[in-house]
Design a protein around this nucleic acid. Sequence first.
DNA 1: ACAGACTTTAATGTATACGTTAATGCATGC
DNA 2: GCATGCATTAACGTATACATTAAAGTCTGT
Lengths: 224, 224
Amino acid sequence: MTGLDTPTTQTQAAAEALREMIFEGSLAPGSDHLESELAALLGMSRTPVREAALILQVQGLVTVRPRRGLRVLPVAPEDMREVYAVLTELEALAAEQAAQQAYSTDALATLRAAIDAMDAALVAPDLAAWAQADAAFHRELVRLGGNQRVQQIVDMMNDQVRRAKMVTLQLRTLPTASNEDHRAVLEAIAKGDAKTARACHRQHRERAGEELLGLLQRHKLAQL
Amino acid sequence: MTGLDTPTTQTQAAAEALREMIFEGSLAPGSDHLESELAALLGMSRTPVREAALILQVQGLVTVRPRRGLRVLPVAPEDMREVYAVLTELEALAAEQAAQQAYSTDALATLRAAIDAMDAALVAPDLAAWAQADAAFHRELVRLGGNQRVQQIVDMMNDQVRRAKMVTLQLRTLPTASNEDHRAVLEAIAKGDAKTARACHRQHRERAGEELLGLLQRHKLAQL
DNA sequence: ACAGACTTTAATGTATACGTTAATGCATGC
DNA sequence: GCATGCATTAACGTATACATTAAAGTCTGT
């Protein structure tokens, strides 16, 4: 009960801390940070910071350049388009494969709960709660797909656009239509209708993606 | 002229060397290797080896465990299935997007050349040449799609199954049918027919994937 | 005053040192 | 003879040291 969050190694701790700082914005997109600064900030030596930086670089969150330290990668609309394209494909695949697994009603409880939570958040209305439930839905969907590589990649892509999503969330009208999509996907999965599950989720993703990109353009958010 | 292969940093050199050793098999799948051994082998200190190991771990080629050094990840049929599913989705996406770019005939020359090379390799017959041309075709297709994240992910996935592919290549009958698929994809891209390009390539991938998995099962290759 | 070369500074890449800790082997007791 | 506990060993995680090298600042000559 005390703590399952035992960041055994300093490298892991550094990676986790840096990720968190990037997501909440205390390391701004486009900003540069020397290894030594970060090491001092995190209260450790350069070594684990360096290792964490390498990890984050492979994960597409920062770049490490010889004298300028690590730069937090900004996310331009073009990046969003790329990431959303990948997410659309892989989540649609996950939906299809989830449908093929013939999950019991019980196994789909989490998915259903997420949808209900979104409904509740819409009437509240509570944007943050909606976003959280939406994320839970997508995460669970991908998990049900059962392809671990898809899960990893989707996680990576979501991390890359996390900041942008948080900003656009505020600008957005309540996505009341979204939950019809979600329910359709759930139903298709429950019925084992793989084709429909894939098609529905793809449509859902494409719609959401376009809406988001439209938002970015309308608000002239060049990068986040 | 002397060398454009200037592996500026030791970490990069180590990563490259380890990758190569994994691919050609001198680091066998499932085998463990201590950091110190590898450092001695590569003639450098543990530091760059450690950093390289971290990179390869994120890329899904090895796992690093506290006292057992880094383990070269074996690829089981289930892994192949996962990777092929991802490749099918993302390459199909690339084909679709390539078709939407309205490339000129010139721009598609590389793709055409790869197909011709495969034809030539089939009549030779020259399995190695065919495999190389096939890889070139797929790589160029993904490049034409224009999504850098897709390119990165596809590269990662290909790396993960590289060894397995080399083994199965030897077991396989000459894929004479494959090139019809390739030509169909090329034509669809040239005509700007995105839907067809996607569908053709998906079908091509699914067929190839099933064939490969069948091979693995028939030969009872549990892991590679 | 400005351009160019030189000096200085400091951040990196890599090696090395060292404490911690898990695995191995041995001794002891049953 | 076998299991259990302890000592030993060595691999790792991390800190530190250091040479290299790119950037910044300075100085000089025109």
